[in-house]
Structures are given as structure tokens and as C-alpha cells.
Design a protein around this nucleic acid. Structure first.
Length: 519
RNA sequence: GGCCCCAUCGUCUAGAGGCCUAGGACACGGGCCUUUCAAGCCUGUAACCGGGGUUCGAAUCCCCGUGGGGUCACCA
């Protein structure tokens, strides 16, 4: 069987983390079976600024390595891949539905339908349209039109029997036909609605497996009905568990950001990212820049595969211990059978730890290539970076080790090496510098290391320990003020690394300058 | 409200009748290391929604509750 899957986003202007998971699973399944992964743009609704609203979605998928074999910008045998450009086919399908007696023109006004709905509700029985404004003959239609009514095309859903779907995730799911509504598939102006368009396009694209979020499970009967009425074979269905809010089982939504921010883990990740974004001049708006949206991770410097790997673990698992997969490993390991059926809440901290894992394993050269652009954007190095700057940054990366969790973290670790007078954190000054005797201590320490033959971590450590011993003080009582003197803050790479990277002249100059603020 | 789905540590999950005094990961607590912050190492707390069945035996199968979620548009 030829596997063809699709991801069909509507151009909303952003790529949602839940969408990523859906796209990823479709992609994985296609790759696993040597099939085809198709990207279709479901833009049947309004269509204004489609191009602009589409850009973040395409670039987001590309960044994540979720490449599509057919779709926008790459084309393919089933083109066009924009639903709005396939309207003729949708209309033809609506005609066939009508001709086959599987749909009818309906002239009910919305308020008339509402009345029926309310009456049914009041009577405590499920609503089922009376079809009293259905035009089953041309005469009916003419009569209704004479009344000034406009006709839409409605599905003539069966009112007895059941539909059985064999869902790859959920197993057998049964629906009673008499609970399904006569949904509108074509408006009076001739434009077709999503469900019709989607079924027709899926068939035209020869989609073999419809892999989508659980929210579509309830839509399946009407889509299956359309497909059957049109004589299409049904695709295999796999309904993925919803990606839920942090610490909840409610569907994750971009709109409820303020609420998610109350979750400490979520807030921590969001604030960390915002801090980085601000330093590279992004002035992000919380509305479009937050951990629910893929651009957030890209701007802040996460590794795309870390996102993919983390998302793969949302609702899917391989076994009881394997968590990290290379691309090939994941493709090989992935199966629909091991998708979970209960909702999975999105945990930004878990994603963070996966990111940590991959950043940890990244070679220094790769880190350098990733991080340099952040320093350029922040104005801390030239574009392109000079060899001298590059050398410093490389040493900072080496010295910082696992402290750099995302590429953007380099800003907080490299900045004080790259500017002549780093800002002094008032709190750090107060706690470590403004103590009695510190000024004198810094002066004597400067003299002590001035004579170090080789200004490198090893010799510096020796000299520093010897100095502390000679002074009769604990190493910490020396190291802390020196660190603040050099960097302006209390955290950073190891002190001997800081000294060495700075170099003797600048280090001594900073020690001297800091004495003015010391006690 | 109707229909549908779901139900194991706070979170992601393993578990397809005995291997379960329920395993792993994240988070959290404690300890070690240590010049800070990370990392690393050791260690701890923590779960089968409830009730009935079936069975020699149930986290696993069935039923009923309860709880949560999704969906019921001339949105996608």
C-alpha cells in the first residue's frame, strides 16, 4: 500500500505546538513507510493575506526538518495545494452529491433552524432538522426562491443505522446516523465548506491515512458520509490525543496564554525566552511570542530536533525507557500502534530538559555557529565577527559548558567579555564588593596575579590559592568579590577561565576599577 | 444537554491476567563534589478514580457509577 499522509493547516499566521505534533506524526508515518508527506493549505475561509499568514508556518516546518514532498513551493502531481484554488472540484462534488440524492438544496433561514433547534431542546429530544425547506424538486426550489429565500446545499444524512470506524489509535468507534446533522456543504454563493473540501481534496491527493487530532473524531461521520456518497474509498483514520494545557487536560490554545503563565514552569520558560528576545531587539509581544508557538523556540535558539524529539513523546512512546532518538531512529521506531489515546499535557519543562540533553551533546564548533548570530544581533560582535571576537566567544562557550541551555544564553555569558565596561549588578556589588577590606584585598590580589607567568587557568588557579592561603582567608571570600569585579555579577563560568579569557591587561584594569566601588 | 473519546506518580509514560511489594523520564526534596551558577554522582517523596463482577489470580477483561475532555457553525 502506498502511504500518503497530509498536514493541512489553515493560514493563521503562526505554527502552533499542537500543529507541530500533528505534522510530525504524519511526517514520521510517511517516512517510516517510504510514503509521501503532503502539505495542503486549508484556506477556504477568508483568504486575505494568505501569503503573509502562511510564511511562519512554512518556515517553522522547514526549521523543524519536517519537509514535505508535495505542497506549496515544491509543487507536485496533485497541484494546486491551496484549497481555495481547488474550488471547482469542490463544486462539482456538491453537484454530484445533489444528483445522487445525498444532498439537497435547503432554503431554511438561519432563524428558522434556530427555532427548530430550540423547540427540540425544550422538548428534551435531540435536534434533527425537519427538512421542511428542503427542495427536492425544481418546483420546490422555484417556490422558495420566489419567497426571496436563498438555497444552500445540505447533506441528506442517513437517519438509521450506524457507522463503524476502525481508528488506528482508538479501535472501533461507532456512531448512530440519526445523531448526525444535515450539515451545510455549500453556501448560497457557491462556495464550499471545509468538510466537503477536505474530503474531496484528500481523495484527489490519494491520502491513505488521515492522521489528525482527536477534535476531528466527531467530524468523521459526516466526512465518511461525503466520501461514501461520492464513491470514494475511506482512508484509514488515526485520531491523535489532544495536546493539552500544562497541568490540565483541556486543549492547548494560543488564546489562553495569560492563564498558562500562572503555571510556574511555563512562566519560567516564557520569561527566559523573552529576556533573550529583548536583547536581540525583538521587543516581542506576548501574543505572538510564547512557548505555544514555534517561532518562540527558533528565535530563542532551541535546537529544532530537540523540539521534534520532545513532541514525539507527547502521546507516543517507544518503550519504558528510550527517550532520545536520532532522526533515523525515530522514523524507524515510530508506529501508529504505540500512540496513546488519552490527552497529553504539554510540559515546557520536559521540553527544556530534552533541549538540555541535545545542547549538552553539541560539539563546540556547532555551538559557536549557532550562537554567534545572537551576539551579532545584540550588537556585541561585528557582522561578521572578527577572528579575535570569534576566539573569545569560542573560549566562553568552552568555559560555560552546560550553562548554555539554548543558543540565546550566550548573551548572558559572553557579554562582559565583549564590552569594555560591563554594567555592575547593584545587588552583586552590595553583597560581594561593598564589604570592609575588599578594596585592599582586590589590590593585593591584582599584584599577586600580575606576576603570573602564563595567564591561563592552571597557573591562575595556583596563584589564587597561594594568595588566599597567604592572606589567611577562605578561597570563596576571595573568589566572589573578584568575580563581581570582573563581570559585574555573581554567576558565570569558572573564575580562572574568566580571568584567562579576559587577559591580563583587561582583568587587572577591571580589578582596579572595581576597587572604587568596594568597601 | 445529545453524541463521541479518555482515566497509572504533579507531568510524560511502561504495563496487552500471574514477571508489579507497579518500572523509567521530567519536576521536586536530601546528600556528595565545589570559587558562583550549571553539570555530574548518590539518594528520597510520589500513582493504578470508585463500586460491582469474571477468574485460582486483575493496573490489565466486562458492567455501572464518577470525573475530565472533545464535538454539536452557512469556522477550519
Amino acid at each position: 500500500m502506498t502511504v500518503r499522509t497530509r498536514f493541512a493547516p489553515s493560514p493563521t499566521g503562526y505554527l502552533h505546538i499542537g500543529g507541530v505534533r500533528t505534522a510530525l506524526f504524519n511526517w514520521l508515518f510517511a517516512r517510516k513507510h517510504g510514503g509521501t508527506f503532503i502539505l495542503r493549505i486549508d484556506d477556504t475561509d477568508a483568504g486575505r493575506n494568505v501569503e503573509e499568514a502562511l510564511a511562519p508556518i512554512l518556515s517553522g516546518l522547514r526549521w523543524l526538518g519536517i519537509d514535505w514532498d508535495e505542497g506549496p513551493e515544491v509543487g507536485g502531481p496533485c497541484a494546486p495545494y491551496f484549497q481555495s484554488e481547488r474550488a471547482a472540484g469542490h463544486r462539482a462534488a456538491a453537484e454530484r452529491l445533489l444528483a445522487g440524492g445525498h444532498a439537497y438544496r435547503d432554503y431554511a433561514r438561519p432563524e428558522e433552524l434556530d427555532e427548530e433547534r430550540k423547540a427540540a431542546q425544550a422538548a428534551g429530544r435531540p435536534f434533527l432538522y425537519s427538512r421542511r425547506f428542503a427542495a427536492f424538486t425544481p418546483d420546490d426550489a422555484a417556490r422558495f426562491e420566489a419567497e426571496g429565500r436563498q438555497g444552500v446545499v445540505r447533506l441528506k444524512m442517513p437517519r438509521e443505522g450506524t457507522l463503524v470506524i476502525d481508528d488506528a489509535v482508538r479501535g472501533r468507534v461507532e456512531f448512530a446516523w440519526d445523531r448526525e446533522q444535515d450539515h451545510v456543504v455549500q453556501r448560497a454563493d457557491g462556495s464550499c465548506l471545509y468538510h466537503l473540501a477536505s474530503v474531496v481534496d484528500d481523495h484527489d491527493f490519494r491520502i491513505s491515512h488521515v492522521i489528525r487530532a482527536e477534535e476531528h473524531l466527531s467530524n468523521t461521520p459526516r466526512q465518511a458520509f461525503i466520501a461514501m456518497a461520492l464513491g470514494y474509498p475511506l482512508p484509514a483514520y488515526a485520531h491523535l490525543p489532544l495536546v493539552a494545557e500544562p497541568g490540565s487536560r483541556t486543549k492547548l490554545s494560543k488564546r489562553k496564554l495569560a492563564q498558562y503563565l500562572k503555571n510556574p514552569d511555563f512562566r519560567q520558560v516564557a520569561e527566559h525566552g523573552t529576556r533573550i528576545a529583548e536583547r536581540i531587539g525583538l521587543a516581542p509581544e506576548a501574543d505572538t511570542f510564547n512557548p505555544v508557538i514555534v517561532d518562540f523556540y527558533r528565535e530563542v535558539g532551541y535546537l529544532p530536533w530537540a523540539i521534534d524529539n520532545a513532541m514525539a513523546l507527547l502521546g507516543w512512546s517507544y518503550d519504558d525507557k528510550t527517550e532520545f532518538f536520532s532522526r533515523d531512529e525515530l522514523v524507524a521506531a515510530f508506529t501508529l500502534e504505540r500512540i496513546n489515546s488519552s490527552p497529553a499535557s504539554f510540559d515546557p519543562k520536559k521540553l527544556w530538559s530534552v533541549q538540555d540533553h541535545y545542547m549538552h551533546a553539541l560539539p563546540v564548533d556547532d555551538k559557536l555557529a549557532l550562537m554567534l548570530p545572537f551576539l551579532v544581533k545584540a550588537g556585541l560582535v561585528d557582522a561578521p565577527a572578527t577572528p579575535g571576537q570569534t576566539a573569545i566567544v569560542r573560549r566562553v562557550i568552552e568555559a560555560s559548558g552546560d550553562r548554555l541551555k539554548v543558543a540565546g544564553d550566550i548573551l548572558a555569558y559572553a557579554d562582559f567579555f565583549l564590552v569594555e565596561e560591563p554594567p555592575m549588578d547593584p545587588k552583586a556589588v552590595e553583597q560581594k564588593l561593598a564589604k570592609p577590606g575588599v578594596a585592599g584585598l582586590l589590590g593585593r590580589y591584582a599584584d599577586a596575579i600580575r606576576g603570573v607567568a602564563s595567564f591561563e587557568p592552571g597557573p591562575l588557579e595556583e596563584a589564587t590559592k597561594a594568595f588566599a592561603a597567604a592572606e589567611g582567608i577562605k578561597l570563596g571570600d576571595l573568589v566572589h568579590p573578584v568575580r563581581v569585579a570582573l563581570s559585574g555579577r555573581t554567576v558565570g563560568p569558572g573564575l580562572y577561565d574568566c580571568l584567562a579569557i579576559l587577559g591580563a591587561p583587561r582583568a587587572l584594569e577591571r580589578l582596579e576599577r572595581a576597587r572604587a566601588q568596594a568597601g
